[in-house]
């Protein structure tokens, strides 16, 4: 049983580290701020979440686990808020999302039947 928990905890730590690395590679590689937010999203959700989940499994059910859960819940609430504030600031600062390699204004308001409306 202890061995099983160890293996699960290691798997979570390895997978979390991998996702964090991929997210950071995304932050470096993706072409503009709005695209880089997706990379930061990977770091903030699955990267952080899996590493802390690995720590939780290692610890078992104690006060430490409760604190880890608190950290995870807080980051899950804070991360979209930060991203949204940053996106609004970037739009306000005159940045336009790159669409198909060129700066395009946002699509005209349409209903969600319209397919990925691109301009």
């Amino acid at each position: 049983m202890a061995l099983l928990a160890d293996i699960a905890s290691w798997a979570c730590l390895i997978a979390g580290s991998l996702f964090a690395l991929i997210g950071a590679v995304g932050i470096v590689r993706l072409p503009d701020v709005f695209a880089r937010m997706h990379g930061a999203g990977i770091v903030d959700t699955l990267g952080m979440g899996l590493i802390l989940a690995g720590l939780m499994i290692h610890e078992g059910f104690t006060m430490v686990t409760v604190k880890l859960v608190l950290i995870v819940v807080f980051i899950f609430f804070a991360s979209p808020t930060t991203t949204h504030a940053l996106a609004r600031a970037a739009l306000n600062g005159g940045l336009k999302p790159l669409v198909d390699g060129k700066n395009a204004p946002s699509a005209e308001p349409g209903e969600r039947t319209g397919g990925p409306s691109k301009t």
Partner: peptide, 12 residues
Amino acid sequence: ITLTPGTVTIGL
């Protein structure tokens, strides 16, 4: 939407 990577809400 923002929490799922691949989609980010930039205005509401």
